[in-house]
Design a protein around this nucleic acid. Structure first.
Length: 265
DNA sequence: CCTATAGCCTGACGGC
DNA sequence: TGCCGTCAGGCTATAG
C-alpha cells in the first residue's frame, strides 16, 4: 500500500508523536527486514538516541537521529507505524519495536516482511545509492522536470510512472488513478503521448497525490470522480458508466476504464 | 532501454 | 471445516 500519500502521512504521524524522546530499547525481530548489518549493531545504534526531524523521498521515510545519522524505513507492500503506550496494546505483526523513555512505543507493523530498515550516515547519499529519481511531490518537480524525467522513454506510461528511478513516489494503485483521471490508457507508450496529454498526466499526478494527503486517505472524503472506490473488474466508470477492466501491465495488475481511457493515435 | 518472469514473504479469499 | 490455489498496493535479479 505505501505510496507517496501513505508515507507522507506516516511522516506527519512521526512528527506529531515520537520526536525528541530518548530511545530506551529497540527490538528488531526479523533479520530479513534489515537491509545491511547485524541486528545487535542496529539495536545498539539507536539506544540512547532520539529522533530529531524526519524527511521523505518517494516511498522512503528518514528519521534523523540526534548527534548524527539517520534511520531509514521502507514499508514494502504492507508496512505501517503505530505509536502506543503499554506493551499490552502492541498491535500484531510488529517487526521493529522502539521503546521511548516516556513509556510509549513506536511499532513498525509489517505482516509481509518485504520492507527494509537500516541506519545510514546521510540521506542524500542513500537516495543516490538507491538510484531514486526526483520526489514527485517536491516543489521543484514541476512540469519541466516531469517532461525531462520522461524524455527518451519508449515504454508504457504506467510502468514509467511507477519506475522509482524515473520519479519516486507513485506505485501501482495511484498510477491507475492518475491515468484514469487523465484519460490515458495504461499501456500507452510514453513517446506516443503529446505535450498536452503529458501535461494532463502531470497535473493529475500532483492533484491526486495532494488530495489523498489532504483527505488523509479517507475514502468518503474523496471527490466522486475517483477510480479508487470502483477499482475492481466489472465496476462502473464514474465518468461514462463504461466498464472497469483489469489487465496486466509489466506484470502488475492495472485497472482502467475500457471506454474512456483510449490508446493515443 | 524495455519486458517478462521469478522470487522474496505471508495473509486473505474463493472454490471444492 | 479444511485444503489448495491465487492474488495482493513493494522491489530486485536475471534473461532475452
Amino acid at each position: 500500500m505505501p505510496e507517496y500519500p501513505e508515507v507522507e502521512l506516516l511522516k506527519q504521524y512521526c512528527d506529531s508523536t515520537c520526536l525528541h524522546q530518548e530511545i530506551e530499547s529497540v527490538e528488531l525481530r526479523e533479520k530479513i527486514i534489515l537491509e545491511e548489518g547485524t541486528i545487535k549493531d542496529f539495536e545498539r545504534g539507536l539506544v540512547g538516541r532520539s529522533f530529531e526531524t524526519t524527511c521523505r523521498h518517494g516511498k522512503y521515510l528518514f528519521l534523523k537521529l540526534d548527534d548524527e545519522g539517520w534511520l531509514v524505513l521502507h514499508f514494502g507492500m504492507t508496512g505501517d507505524l503505530q505509536y502506543f503506550k503499554g506493551r499490552d496494546q502492541e498491535p500484531d505483526y510488529v517487526q521493529l519495536l522502539i521503546e521511548f523513555a516516556n513509556g510509549y512505543h513506536l511499532g513498525m507493523i509489517m505482516p509481509r516482511k518485504l520492507g527494509k530498515v537500516r541506519q545510514i550516515a546521510d540521506a542524500g547519499d542513500y537516495i543516490r545509492w538507491k538510484g531514486l529519481g526526483p520526489d514527485v511531490m517536491a516543489q521543484d518537480f514541476d512540469l519541466q522536470a516531469f517532461l525531462n524525467a520522461l524524455e527518451g522513454r519508449r515504454g508504457m506510461i504506467k510502468s514509467a510512472l511507477m519506475n522509482q528511478e524515473i520519479m519516486a513516489g507513485v506505485g501501482n494503485v495511484y498510477s491507475d488513478e492518475i491515468l484514469f483521471q487523465a484519460r490515458v490508457h495504461p499501456k500507452a507508450k510514453v513517446n506516443d503521448l503529446d505535450q498536452v496529454t503529458l501535461r494532463r498526466i502531470f497535473d493529475c499526478l500532483k492533484d491526486i497525490l495532494g488530495t489523498l494527503v489532504d483527505v488523509r486517505l479517507e475514502r468518503d472524503k474523496l471527490p466522486r470522480n475517483y477510480l479508487l472506490p470502483v477499482r475492481g473488474a466489472g465496476e462502473q466508470c464514474p465518468y461514462c458508466q463504461g466498464e472497469v477492466k483489469n489487465i496486466k501491465v509489466s506484470g502488475r495488475s492495472a485497472y482502467y476504464c475500457s471506454s474512456c481511457q483510449k490508446m493515443p493515435g
